[in-house]
Design a protein around this nucleic acid. Structure first.
Lengths: 357, 357
DNA sequence: CCGTGTTACTGTATCGATCCAGAAGACTGA
DNA sequence: TCAGTCTTCTGGATCGATACAGTAACACGG
């Protein structure tokens, strides 16, 4: 039988409490006895206090749950997510805390809810889930600390970390407009509800289920409106996921049917890189024939010469972890807005003059 | 106060067991009563059975622990690890199981042990830890299922998944020898014991603390010995970590002091890609001036034209998860050796004739 | 020698569920 | 009709620890 505290206590003729204290509160017993206890434990093959039992009694688990928007298996291949996780992990390391990845992806709603309910964690980091995802109710029901990363919802108790997406997008939009672009298309992704990549009509940014996409599109809308380009004049394509391949597929639809836009904005870099792929396939020169703007400034963006909005996913992860593991007292401090800036690279340039090509 | 099973039971005038059954064993009570219980629970804001309490009673936690060799924060940036994790996550998803990342990196030995002891998991996947890592004893003491990925140790109970590293390396070594290479150097990494990247002398492969490095070097040794190249004729450089940058640094040491090798083999692709970087910096042509072989065939290897040994990290992760979550009956089936094959690309070519350059 | 502390350890209640033996009632078949 | 089975629900034991109040022993100042 697996040895327990009691086993060790009996062997030594001391009380269970004393053995427990030997592990968790060394100041509660003499150094000699403690040594004797630990030695006996070693001899009996007692691996130390049972983590689950300890968690139950203590009321804390030493782990935080991470809810990812995509399949864990996909998330790992997305550089932005990887950076975010890397920051989160750094924070967890500092607090000697584990990271429990909750695989929500393939699961139906019911399973997703159960997974959230069953997660032994002290708090949740919700990363990029679409609004209204079934698991969100389950998360709230747990009444644990929650930090939303790159997303906001109507939960007044949830903490937040992210950037001012709308403001950043406004800057990017102004940049485009300043270059003379008027025929502009936008690419975003829609949750994997089986919806195919394709052109869509969009009454307004509010129709998008992802907070960051929504805000970013809102920023573009405002900036372009200021330049005299109305919402109705924009073209849209919805990708099936936030991946490069789907970005390329979405771009293809925009490029292959007239009127061809002079600029394409994507709500993140992966989609934008896909756009560049689609341009390359067609022999179109980014920044000359068609301007492209991404968002996030993942490492590949620099290599590809992609104009984008730079902010630090890693820092965001770090802050998210900090908020969960060491929540600041003030309510205001639980809402962290990180800086972001437009990085102009070769993928944007003056709009080609009408009929020049 | 947070509602418990009892709260719901009292409200409804039924027993605690019945409420429990409503959640966990629907066949044990009538559909109507179950609906009433769930409805009451919803009304009271009861989030479902407490995961920790349930785990304690049931004896299972619904999560598996992952011990990574590097800082979690670094691991996420290594493509091979990412692929492995992606496979592991896929397996976890299928079994509705969480993945608990145990951040061992920055921690001193004592902390590492505590983290392992405190992890609420049903099993451990040990991935690429160096032999003798302190946490390994702690893992064994837990007496949980263990699967070693890409590593073997002397624990007879541990399961295994990996490839036949030595055989694969032998094939690669034969390839090099067949191309006429005789002045050959090898690059590997040493655990982050503060040891700097630098040239080292190595009595034999056995001195390496990483199983896979050891085996791979062993394979090269055998193949080269067969071609008449003795161990003493080989040059070595130890990198501080398995990263591209450290690979480049290690390669620099080999390239900048005569006699310059005609071929450099690295125990993984990241180091090898670093070697290519170092070559590029010096205007040396891989496959002409210097041949380079990696190991793993990460996606970047194809782009870089790197000759390497292909095997699937993703599949390995998947198998590791399967072994943990659904252990096969037979002892033999708990030792899975996946296929691997040499992929010859542009980075290897005939050895330059002496003094040709 | 008493009162007050301090140190070192014990014992019981408790964390929040699940398990399992068993009871009560309904149903079945001969 | 009555034993036997099924369905539905109950109650107590239990998982393995920690918290906290309490006790005994010893020290120390006055």
């Amino acid at each position: 039988m697996r040895p327990t505290l009691q086993t060790v206590a009996d062997e030594l003729g001391v009380s269970r409490s004393t053995v427990s204290n030997a592990y968790s509160r060394p100041d509660q017993l003499s150094a000699e006895l403690r040594e004797k206890v630990l030695e006996t434990a070693r001899r009996l093959g007692y691996p130390g206090p049972h983590p689950t039992a300890r968690s139950l009694r203590r009321g804390t688990t030493g782990a935080i749950g991470v809810l990812l928007n995509a399949a864990v298996s996909v998330a790992f291949t997305d550089p932005y997510t990887v950076q975010f996780m890397s920051g989160l992990a750094a924070a967890a390391e500092r607090h000697e805390t584990g990271l429990l990845l909750v695989p929500l992806s393939g699961s139906d709603d019911e399973t997703a809810v159960r997974l959230v309910q069953d997660a032994s964690v002290d708090g949740f980091c919700v990363y990029g889930l679409p609004d209204g995802h079934r698991s969100l109710d389950a998360v709230r029901a747990r009444r644990l600390p929650i930090v939303n990363a790159d997303r906001r919802d109507d939960d007044p108790d949830a903490m937040f970390v992210g950037i001012d997406d709308a403001a950043a997008a406004r800057t990017a939009g102004a940049h485009l407009a300043g270059l003379g672009h008027r025929r502009i298309a936008a690419i975003f992704a829609l949750p994997a509800s089986g919806r195919p990549t394709g052109p869509v009509s969009l009454a307004g940014p509010d129709d998008l289920p992802y907070h960051f996409s929504r805000e970013r599109l809102r920023g573009y809308r405002d900036a372009l409106a200021e330049a005299g380009v109305g919402w109705a004049e924009l073209a849209f394509a919805g990708a099936a996921s936030y991946t490069r391949a789907d970005g390329a597929a979405a771009a293809a639809l925009l490029l292959d049917r007239p009127p061809r836009p002079t600029a394409i904005v994507a709500v993140n870099d992966m989609l934008a890189l896909g756009v560049l792929d689609a341009l390359a396939e067609r022999g179109l020169r980014p920044g000359h024939d068609i301007s492209v703007i991404g968002f996030d400034d993942v490492p590949e963006a620099a290599t590809a010469g992609l104009t984008t909005v730079r902010h630090s996913a890693r820092e965001m992860g770090r802050v998210a972890g900090g908020l969960l593991l060491d929540p600041p007292a003030g309510r205001a401090a639980r809402d962290v807005v990180l800086p972001a800036e437009l990085v102009v690279r070769a993928s944007t340039g003056p709009a080609p003059t009408e009929g020049a090509r």
